[in-house]
C-alpha cells in the first residue's frame, strides 16, 4: 500500500511541513514534525547526516488506520511506542532484539520486527498490528483459522504469528515448505502450537487449512 493510497487520506507529503524537514530524506524525515517540537529537538545536520534528538521529537504515523501523533525520544522503538505510548498491546515484547517474532507488525504491508525498528524510522508510515487485521467479532480469515486449528495455547506468541502468517499468505496463498520456513521461521512458540500453525498455512500433511478442522466440536 503506498502512502498516498490509504483510506484515511493520510499522506506522507502532508507531514513535510517544516523547511528543515524538507532537507531530510527517507523514512527518518517523514512524519517528524519539527515545528511542533522543542527547538533543540528539531532535525539538524551533523556532519551531513540528518539528526534528531536526543530530546523528545514529535512523530506522526498511522496505526491500524488511525493517524496517531506522539512525542517520544528518538531511541524509542516502534514496539515500545505501540505498547507504552499508544496502548496497542497486541504486539508483544519477548526477546526485544529481533529473535523471536512476537512483536511482528506490518509496515506499509511488509512484516517487520517492531522491537528492532525505531519509532522515528516508522514515522509517516502505516503500521498494522494484529488488532488491525480483525477483531473478536470480525476476525481476519487467518485469525479465524488460528482459532479453528487451535494454533494457540498461552497465546503470547500468537499476535506475531498471526501477522507473519497473514503476510505470508497474502504473498503466497499456497506456500510450500521453503516459503513457510522463510515466512514463519522468525517466530517462536513455547507452548508448542506449531501443528495448528502449520494447519493455518495449509502445510502439506496439515490439511485443515483455513477452512478449519472438524474436531467434532
Amino acid at each position: 500500500m503506498s502512502d498516498e493510497a490509504k483510506g484515511s487520506g493520510f499522506s506522507r507529503r502532508s507531514f513535510l511541513r517544516g523547511g528543515a524537514a524538507g532537507a531530510l530524506s527517507g523514512g527518518l524525515a517523514a512524519g517528524l514534525l519539527p515545528e511542533d517540537a522543542a527547538a533543540a529537538a528539531a532535525p539538524k545536520d551533523v556532519d551531513g547526516v540528518p539528526t534528531v534528538g536526543p530530546g523528545p521529537v514529535e512523530v506522526e504515523l498511522e496505526v491500524n488506520g488511525v493517524v496517531r501523533r506522539l512525542e517520544a525520544e528518538p531511541r524509542v522503538t516502534l514496539l515500545d511506542a505501540l505498547r507504552d505510548h499508544l496502548d496497542t498491546t497486541g504486539p508483544k515484547r519477548v526477546c526485544d532484539r529481533g529473535a523471536c517474532g512476537a512483536c511482528t507488525v506490518l509496515e506499509d504491508g511488509h512484516p517487520i520486527y517492531a522491537c528492532s525498528r525505531l519509532l522515528i524510522e516508522s514515522a509517516g508510515r502505516s503500521i498494522t498490528t494484529v488488532e488491525g487485521l480483525g477483531s473478536p467479532d470480525a476476525m481476519h480469515e487467518v485469525q479465524q483459522a488460528f482459532v479453528e486449528n487451535d494454533a494457540q495455547q498461552c497465546g503470547y506468541c500468537t499476535p506475531g504469528f498471526v501477522v507473519a502468517a497473514a503476510a505470508l499468505l497474502a504473498r503466497n496463498p499456497r506456500p510450500g515448505e521453503r516459503e513457510i520456513e522463510a515466512g514463519l521461521g522468525g517466530n517462536f512458540c513455547r507452548c508448542g502450537t506449531y501443528m495448528g500453525i502449520l494447519g493455518v498455512v495449509g502445510a502439506p500433511g496439515h490439511a485443515a487449512g483455513r477452512s478449519g478442522g472438524d474436531h467434532g466440536g
Binding site: 505498547r83 507504552d84 496502548d87 497486541g90 473478536p136 481476519h140 482459532v147 497465546g155 498471526v162 474436531h215
Partner: peptide
C-alpha cells in the same frame, strides 16, 4: 468433544490483555 478454546478469538486478534499489557 473438541470445541475450540473459548478465548481463541481474543488471543488471535491481540485483544486479550495479559498482565504485561496493562497500562
Amino acid at each position: 468433544r473438541g470445541p475450540a478454546r473459548l478465548d481463541g478469538a481474543v488471543k488471535s486478534t491481540g485483544f486479550a490483555r495479559y498482565p504485561s499489557d496493562r497500562n
